[in-house]
């Protein structure tokens, strides 16, 4: 356990000395910013038109209330999170290969498993932080805009959906770590993320999204509007199994693969 903590400390230092935290922070800060802005436009269409934010002929769909806004945050984290959380994981693993520093990690008194766990722990820590940041910044933006329809029940439901979506999305980062390790860099995991994101949308449209891990957070968030598909416990289990497979695959690969 001490070695895992040491590894986490090292990984945290490496991570926070890079620019990845700043870039990912700014990238996800766009979610509450644009979400709040969109709600503002919905609430004040005439003002938005007079300020030139939207065209006078534009048709605005939706309503400026907390139900829509919390849904929008959950949908954004389900889609954007898949990319940003995946990027964080791909960087944490892929950089060791791109910067060719991986050799320093492979013949140490610290087990390779501890190093892999520490990397996932740091990735998870940062993704959770980003999730909370988006939520709190989003709530602040919603309050500033003065959205209507707030109630404790609605808020609780919205927060639960948001956290379930975030958790499912974070869980789906582990296969990215595996792809980054096997692909020895950033390129393969980035391709993998874009591929799974696109495939997730296609599979969801075909009605099989409830069994495809990368469709599940988006369906749960409601971004894919299909009333026939419901995400229940089996869907969560599928994501969990995918996540565990990603974690195990990465650990086994680091331990037993040839690092030529």
């Amino acid at each position: 356990m001490t070695m895992v903590m040491s590894c986490i400390e090292v990984e945290l230092r490496k991570f926070f000395r890079s620019r990845v935290p700043l870039f990912t922070f700014l990238a996800l800060l766009l979610v509450p910013f644009f979400g709040g802005f969109f709600m503002f436009v919905l609430k004040n269409p005439e003002l938005a038109q007079s300020l030139g934010f939207i065209s006078a002929k534009a048709q605005l769909i939706g309503s400026a209330d907390w139900t829509s806004y919390l849904g929008l945050l959950a949908q954004s984290i389900a889609i954007g999170g898949l990319l940003v959380f995946g990027f964080v994981t791909s960087w944490i693993f892929g950089r060791e290969f791109s910067d060719r520093t991986v050799n320093d990690l492979l013949a140490l008194p610290t087990s390779r498993n501890a190093i892999v766990l520490a990397k996932f722990a740091v990735a998870t820590f940062w993704c959770v932080f980003l999730t909370l940041m988006v939520l709190f910044a989003g709530l602040a933006a919603g309050t500033l805009v003065g959205l209507s329809g707030w109630s404790p029940q609605l808020f609780t439901k919205g927060i639960v959906v948001y956290f379930v979506c975030s958790t499912l999305t974070i869980l789906l980062s582990t296969p990215v770590g595996f792809i980054a390790s096997v692909g020895r860099g950033y390129l393969s995991p980035l391709g993998f993320m874009i591929f799974t994101l696109a495939l997730g949308q296609i599979v969801a449209v075909t009605g099989r999204g409830h069994i495809f891990p990368w469709s599940i957070p988006a369906i749960f968030s409601g971004v894919i509007a299909d009333s026939n598909i419901l995400i229940e416990v089996p869907g969560v289990i599928i994501v969990l199994i995918t996540s565990i497979a990603g974690l195990m695959g990465t650990t086994l690969w680091w331990t037993y693969a040839d690092h030529a």
Partner: peptide
């Protein structure tokens, strides 16, 4: 990381 940090990071990983 600086030279010193690179070395201290490795020292930590070596326990």
């Amino acid at each position: 990381l600086t030279v010193e940090e690179n070395l201290s990071v490795l020292l930590k990983l070596r326990g």
